[in-house]
Amino acid sequence: MAKRAKSAEKKNVAVIGLGRFGEAVALRLVELGHEVIGIDENAEIVQKLADDLPHVVQADSTDSEALRVLGVNEVDYAVVAIGASLEGSVLSVLALQELGIKDIWAKASTRQHGLILTRLGVSKVVFPEADMGHALAEQLCGA
């Protein structure tokens, strides 16, 4: 198991969508000592991560009542890591907002997706491929 980093304050984070990006975020947060609830609608993904994430469940993230039952209304942050389904991403953000979650970070797969998320008021929109591509280019050129 990876060594846990010391953190000034332990956070409670919901990671919704456990594809490559969501899985990486969730696992790193756990390594850093934070409490994470991972949520995905795909039972195979949930089963695959059951040994690595202390709290991982199969659920419909667009259903605010289902999220409330899971305790998502108590998290400090939420990460919506759904990129393949624009509808799933947007409806998950709305469900989180219904629960009163103020700090929502969301993955966007296109510029238009990012614009919608921004207009919904998410705290931070991330474009994983583009962001990593820019960072790599800067590292290569010493910027």
Rank of each mutant, 00 (worst) to 15 (best):
A2E: 11
A2N: 06
A5K: 14
K6H: 03
K6P: 00
K6C: 02
S7A: 11
S7T: 11
S7I: 07
A8H: 01
A8C: 05
E9I: 01
K11T: 00
K11P: 01
V13A: 09
V13Y: 03
V13I: 14
V15N: 12
V15W: 14
G17H: 10
G19K: 03
G22C: 11
L27G: 10
L27I: 14
R28D: 14
V30Q: 14
V30H: 09
E31F: 02
L32W: 05
G33E: 06
G33H: 06
G33P: 03
H34N: 01
H34D: 00
H34Q: 03
E35P: 05
E35T: 11
G38K: 01
D40K: 11
D40W: 07
E41M: 15
A43L: 08
E44K: 05
E44L: 02
V46F: 06
Q47W: 02
K48S: 08
K48W: 07
K48Y: 02
L49I: 07
A50P: 01
D52H: 14
D52E: 15
L53S: 13
L53R: 15
H55Y: 04
V56R: 10
V57G: 04
Q58A: 06
A59M: 05
T62V: 01
T62R: 12
T62A: 11
D63Q: 14
D63N: 15
S64H: 13
A66K: 15
A66S: 09
A66C: 07
R68N: 14
R68M: 11
R68P: 06
V69S: 11
V69M: 15
L70Q: 14
L70E: 15
L70R: 14
N73Q: 15
D76G: 01
Y77T: 03
Y77P: 03
V79I: 15
V79T: 10
A81T: 00
G83W: 12
G83R: 12
A84Q: 10
S85V: 04
L91F: 10
S92N: 11
V93K: 03
L94S: 09
L94R: 14
L94H: 10
A95F: 13
Q97I: 00
E98C: 08
L99G: 08
G100Q: 12
D103M: 00
I104H: 05
W105K: 13
A106I: 00
A106W: 04
K107M: 06
K107S: 07
K107D: 12
A108Y: 12
A108I: 14
S109K: 14
T110V: 01
T110C: 07
L115G: 08
I116N: 02
L117C: 09
L117T: 02
R119I: 05
L120E: 01
L120D: 03
V122P: 11
V125G: 08
V125L: 08
V126Q: 11
P128I: 10
E129P: 03
A130H: 08
D131R: 05
M132C: 09
G133W: 02
A135N: 02
L136R: 05
A137G: 13
E138L: 09
Q139P: 09
L140M: 15
C141K: 09
G142C: 13
